[in-house]
Design a binder for these strands. Structure first.
Ligand SMILES: [Mn+2]
Ligand SMILES: [Mn+2]
Ligand SMILES: [Mn+2]
Ligand SMILES: [Mn+2]
Lengths: 218, 218
DNA sequence: ACTAATTTTTAGATTAGTCTAAAAATTAGT
DNA sequence: ACTAATTTTTAGACTAATCTAAAAATTAGT
């Protein structure tokens, strides 16, 4: 039996360790889960005991294959529920995260596989993040951030790195969404801001925005 | 803030007190929640403190209006999710309860009201139980149990009292479901069993079955 | 009305998850 | 290499929810 709290730790460690491949330190987990380092130490000991991760005192933790599978399954559920909320229940992409944080812990294989089928097996969630299939396989698409894009080229927006309400609402208010076509006009060396053409309108976005917007070559 | 456990106690007390109208005693709650009487005593003290119910030592508990509203909202969510699972995700009526027990605790007004709308405002769940609207109003239909039905009359099956897997699968295997037409042929005084006509087939059901099947006059 | 059976409450302990404050280990700076 | 800063762990305490065992109150039977 795995608890909701354990699932949240495992998911956080997966994300912090870039798909569970790197070591993650105590303070990073504490910050991510808005808890204290001492609580994290207690919990990672328990998770190590249950074989979800390997823990070396003062060195940090890394997920085991068992832990990685748990993480991928929670992420699958989170992202499928996000698709459901947007496609079927009229949620906007900045409203789904909070509810999906709860729905992702519902345990029923039939539920999630039927939901997947009902949604016609979506490959990406409303933020452009890939949805693993029932075997945990991700369908990853090549992407670059707007910061890395080349002047003169035209791209399609396919995702965001930051899916905070603030950032998503900023994008909404500037008519940027998944599928939007963006041409890079100028990159300002001084502050790394980027001038882009959107539809017919031109605008300048900060480095912060540029780093958090993912594109693919058209 | 109300916890998941508190919600489950309040719901159980609502059902045991016949829509929260009657006093409920400690042992009944303990049995219903598969816990111990001592745990119930502790919890009802806490719920009384939070004004969800009135508690008199050794006398039992009764929900306050605030408690009744919490119960009705949980029941609304439980039954809407049951409809969703059957109508959209190919669950059978004997599979939905367990999953709905978890889904009913997800807290989001938008979620539940959009779900209601998506399902086109259903008035009854897959077991024939009424679904309160967003104001907590039940659309109750007059119903009698098969035990109370009259010989020679024809009825339509509109619900079940017991929604255990065993009972629902028994009904499935005898082709009895919501909407099934039933004519009462004979009532056996010895054991209160009932002989009925279903479609063209005749069969005898036990008193236990007859008491748990709800009908309306055609 | 009095005893016996039942129900309910209290007392004390346990587990999961968290916290603060202090100690220990690691890392960084000179 | 040694001290200072940072990170991490330990120790001890707290809350929510549960349990067992014992005590108290209520209800039932004669
Ligand atoms: Mn999300
Ligand atoms: Mn997402
Ligand atoms: Mn149910
Ligand atoms: Mn039901």
């Amino acid at each position: 039996m795995i608890t909701l709290t354990e699932e949240n730790y495992i998911k956080a460690i997966y994300h912090l360790g870039k798909h569970g491949k790197n070591m993650v330190n105590t303070n990073a987990i504490a910050e991510s889960l808005e808890t204290k380092a001492s609580s994290v130490t207690d919990m990672v000991k328990k998770l190590a005991e249950k074989d979800y991760l390997n823990y070396k005192k003062y060195q940090g933790v890394i997920l085991t294959e068992k832990g990685r599978q748990v993480a991928v399954n929670i992420i699958r559920k989170h992202r499928l529920w996000e698709v459901f909320l947007v496609e079927k229940l009229n949620f906007t992409w900045d409203e789904v995260h909070e509810v999906a944080e709860h729905l992702e812990h519902i345990k029923s294989d039939k539920l999630i596989n039927e939901l997947d089928s009902f949604l016609e097996f979506p490959t990406h969630d409303p933020h452009g993040d890939p949805i693993p299939d029932k075997n945990g396989i991700f369908n990853t698409i090549d992407k670059i951030s707007l910061s890395q894009a080349n002047i003169g080229n035209t791209y399609k927006c396919i995702g965001v790195e930051d899916s905070s309400t603030n950032f998503l609402q900023y994008l909404d208010s500037n008519n940027i969404g998944l599928g939007t076509t963006i041409t890079v006009l100028h990159k300002e060396p001084f502050d790394n801001s980027v001038k882009i053409k959107l539809h017919t309108k031109e605008m300048v976005v900060s480095q912060n925005v540029a780093k958090n917007l993912y594109l693919k070559v058209l």
